[in-house]
């Protein structure tokens, strides 16, 4: 295996407390991960978990208090130029003058790099060709976001860091942006995707690290993380007839004691939820069929990264639960 493109080991960053005598705030307590060439690696976690601070340390915008960061074999603090030449960064908020046009912004940023990408090609890739003469202030949220990605790519970076790139976009624009990120990866760019959207991470990332309260709580491919959940499959059965529901519930509870594929049975007002392995559905069908208990509705419940978060942290996932650390 080739050496990782990005390597973060035991990163730590504490900000002085706001105001006199306030306790210092630890934004990043202990974060480690590696990103391999050509992958889309996700950093996932609620707002305030330490994601942005991690990215800022990676981009050389902040000095870490502890730990070690290597980007393409260089330390962003001691050798910032090598990192700036080869890493494209898309920061959370808009970062251009309202009166600059799309073409102008692209040409100015291209001029900073020794071997920039072709501006017309990049505008075409990002579906911005028609907006070249438009001023930044007049662009829609999705267009601004796409321009921001184009600017991150104009220096032909080996690594692109994309921070919360679909925040504030409508569903159609989000999906279009996801397709775009995959196209960029296919062009050979390693992507570090920072997001608080579970669905985005699940859809895009080859591997990801879940960060909570400044620590990596779990890491892996989205599929492996979901697979590792207890009772990673669920079936919900609905019976209109209360008598049938009771009999079915009794049968299934009995089943859960005998069959290892069925882990738990839970009854709600008019539904029975059965969790277990992927064979649980077969076991349920085999138990109910001889008794002629035919449910009115059957739904399989898919587990998501949200369930992974609940399992590793012991609480519900709320994107905005933590107070954002002041910059």
């Amino acid at each position: 295996m080739t050496s990782p493109v990005v390597e973060v080991r035991n990163l730590r960053k504490t900000y002085p407390g706001a105001g006199r005598g306030a306790a210092p705030k630890t934004a990043v307590a202990d974060v480690s991960f590696q990103v391999a060439r050509g992958e889309i690696f996700g950093i996932l976690g609620p707002n305030g978990a330490g994601k942005t601070t991690t990215v800022e340390c990676l981009a050389g915008l902040r000095a870490a208090d502890g730990g070690d960061i290597q980007v393409l074999g260089n330390n962003p603090r001691t050798d910032p130029m090598s990192v700036r030449q080869h890493v494209g960064v898309q920061l959370q908020e808009a970062a251009l003058h309202d009166n600059i046009t799309v073409d102008e912004a692209m040409r100015v940023f291209a001029s900073f790099y020794p071997d920039p990408a072709s501006v017309p090609e990049l505008l075409d890739l990002l579906d911005l060709t028609a907006h070249g003469k438009q001023r930044f202030g007049k662009l829609s949220g999705g267009q601004k976001q796409r321009l921001s990605i184009a600017l991150a790519l104009v220096g032909k970076p080996q690594v692109a860091i994309l921070d919360e790139l679909t925040t504030g976009l409508d569903p159609a624009a989000r999906r279009a942006t996801w397709d775009l990120v995959e196209r960029v990866r296919d062009s050979g760019v390693t992507i570090l995707l920072v997001t608080h959207f579970m669905d985005e991470a699940e859809r895009l990332c080859d591997r990801l690290a879940v960060i909570d309260k400044g620590r990596v709580v779990t890491e892996g491919t989205p599929a492996s993380l979901i697979e590792s959940l207890d009772g990673s499959r669920g079936v919900r059965l609905r019976f209109a007839d209360p008598a049938a529901r009771r009999r079915a519930a009794d049968l299934l509870t009995l089943l859960s004691r005998q069959d290892d594929d069925v882990a738990a049975v839970r009854t709600t007002a008019d539904e029975i939820e059965v969790t277990g392995t992927r064979r649980a559905l077969f076991a349920v069908v085999q138990a109910l069929a001889p008794a002629e208990l035919v449910p009115d509705d059957v739904r399989t419940v898919t587990r998501t990264l949200e369930d992974v978060f609940v399992q590793v942290t012991g609480r519900q996932y709320q994107a905005d639960e933590n107070e954002e650390v002041a910059a």
Binding site: L61, V87, L91, E93, A95, H97, Y113
Partner: peptide, 11 residues
């Protein structure tokens, strides 16, 4: 607007 911060990530 973050223009200075954005430039700090470029050469």
């Amino acid at each position: 607007k973050g223009v200075l911060r954005r430039l700090a990530t470029t050469p």
